[in-house]
Structure formats: C-alpha cells, structure tokens
Amino acid sequence: MSPSTRHEFQSRPSAARRWESAALWLFRTATYVILICGALVFGNIVFKGSKTVFTTTAPFINVPFFTEAPESLYVFDYQGQKREMGDREFRAFKATHPEAKDIKAESYVYSAGGIFPCIVGTVLLVLGSMIIALTLGVSAAVYLSEYAKQGRAVTLIRLAILNLAGVPSIVFGLFGLGLFVIYLDWNVSLLAGWFTLAFMVLPVVITASEESLKAVPKGFREGSLALGATKWQTIRKNVLPYALPGILTSSILGIARVAGETAPIMFTAAYVVRDKLPWEGLTSVSDFFFQGVMALPYHIYVVSSKIPQNEYTERVQYGTAFVFLVIVALIATCSIVLRNKLRNRYKW
C-alpha cells in the first residue's frame, strides 16, 4: 500500500491529540525547570565554595579553613605589593617587620581564618538534639501505638503532634528563648539549643516511629506474649529491634533537615563569635552544657547579612555553605547506610 492512500488507522489531528502533546510538554518543562534550578543552586555553591575549600597545591584542601577559627582579614600595600593577611599573621608580620608598624591596613571582619568552631558547634548540636529527640520521640511513639488505648484522646494527641510539624522554625526559636533561655534560666546554651531543635524534630521522629512500629507484624507480638513475655519484654526484644531501621532512617533525615535551621538556634544556642572551643576553659562538667556555640547555619547568616559586604566576604560565605552542604549530605548518607545494614539483619 502506498503511503498516500488513506486507510482505516489514518492519523489525523484532533483536540485530544493536541491536549496530549500540550500536557506532555507542560510536565516535561516543569521537570526540567526544577532540575535547572537545583543544578544552579548546587552548581553555584559548589563552584564558588570550592575556590575556598580546595587549593591548587598539595594537599589540595584548604586545611586552615577547616581547623582555624574565623579571623579578621587585613589588606594593605607593602613595598608596592598588595598583601592579604589574617589577624594573627598580620600581628606576627608587624612584629618581625618594624618598618610596617604604622602601616595603614583595611580590615574585613571574619573574612580570614576558618570555620572550625562552627563545624564543632553544629556537630554538637546535631548529636545532642538527636539523642534527646530519639529518647523522647521513640518513648512517646511506643506509648501511643503500643500502650495507649486507641480513642479520641490519642487521636487528638496525634493531631497535635502533626500540627507541631507545621509550626514555623522562628516560633520554635522564640519558644526556646522563652522557656529554656529565660524561664529556666539556661541562657544561650547548648542545652537550650538541643531541646529547641529536639522539639522541632519530634513530630518527624514520633510519626516515623509509629509507622515503623505498626509495620511489625502482629504475630510477633502475639507469639511473644503467648510465651509468657510481659508487654515491655515483647516490645524490647521482639518489636523495637525490627522497627529500629525505619525509626533511625527517618529520624536522622529529620535531624539533618533541622540541623540546617538558623531560626531555632539564633536565640537559644548560637554565638556570633566565640574565641573558645566548647571543651576549652571549662571549670565544671555543667559548664559544657551551659555554653553557647558557633554553628554553621548561623555563621552563614552572620557573614551574609550582619557584616559589611565586600569582595572578601564571598569566600567565607560560599566556603561555609559548601562545607555545610557536604556535612548534611554526609549525615543523610550515614542514615541510609545504617538502614541498609540494619534492614538486612531482620527480614520477614
């Protein structure tokens, strides 16, 4: 049959066909727009941040950026050459070069040095809030799904927990300020930050834990109880271990997200700058819990909006953002690796 002859299945234009291609075009464009936006954000941070984080000479990583505290940057002309130095280096330079004693240098705050105290602070905040959130959240989930009599009260509590997830982070920050910092008089401290972040992540932990507990077959509970186990023995030996992979994965992911929040810690735990590391200058154990720390998200906020902007601040802004992205990605990867490991241990 020649192509020109019309036949039974001849394709012809129709409204349905036009809508079909329009819909396809819309969905495809939407996907690509999202992809491009994501790529732009990540590409921008990785590209500009890597200028700070990596170097062209061995060991190819800007070690001082990871190991030193933020310092002011001094820029000055010396013997016709433009020199850039961090605070300590500049003072040492002036000591060894008496002729440079009265040199006029422009200073740029936080633009030199590194972000070590911020990394330490963020890691401490994440670990502490994770421990508190898991303890409180898993206990509450066990109570709600295993012990509590299902009824209107429990439904109401669940609803309240879900609503908690919708509360803006700044409100959690103010709650932490009011309750922990002011009322309980903990001041701006690790402890206040831990509890504020933990409360913020609780809805995720409780919901995930309840889902994971529900996924454990009823037969395991009945089998255990029929052997003369108490309810708690059953939960501890024959329910929680199987629910743990799910609980941990979702909780760690939730905490990784919360670790990125600035608002909850800006009133409760974060210092703009602190010259001591958290383990330095402690006179008692409790001092550790009642000290404020520097933190990555707050540092990004400070260097992006709280100090005069110039050509030198971009380095620390993007460098910090890049490091922060990598740390959050690492936490997420850890949770996935952990889940895969635990999931293979118990299968049914």
Binding site: P217, G219, F220, E222, G223, S224, L225, A226, L227, G228, A229, K237, N238, Y242, Y346, K347, W348
Partner: peptide, 26 residues
C-alpha cells in the same frame, strides 16, 4: 498463666531470629 498455657497460631509466626533464638526466647 501464659507460661502454663502455650499457644500455636494459625499463621506460623517464627521470630526473625535464628532457630536457636526462637526456641530459647521463652
């Protein structure tokens, strides 16, 4: 009571543990 009155269920429900751990659970 349940230690003295054991039960076997319609749907076999071995725990996701080893055979040895299943027997020694009780």
């Amino acid at each position: 009571l349940r230690k003295r009155v054991g039960m076997v269920f319609q749907k076999s429900n071995p725990f996701p543990k080893s055979i040895y751990e299943n027997i020694t659970y009780g």
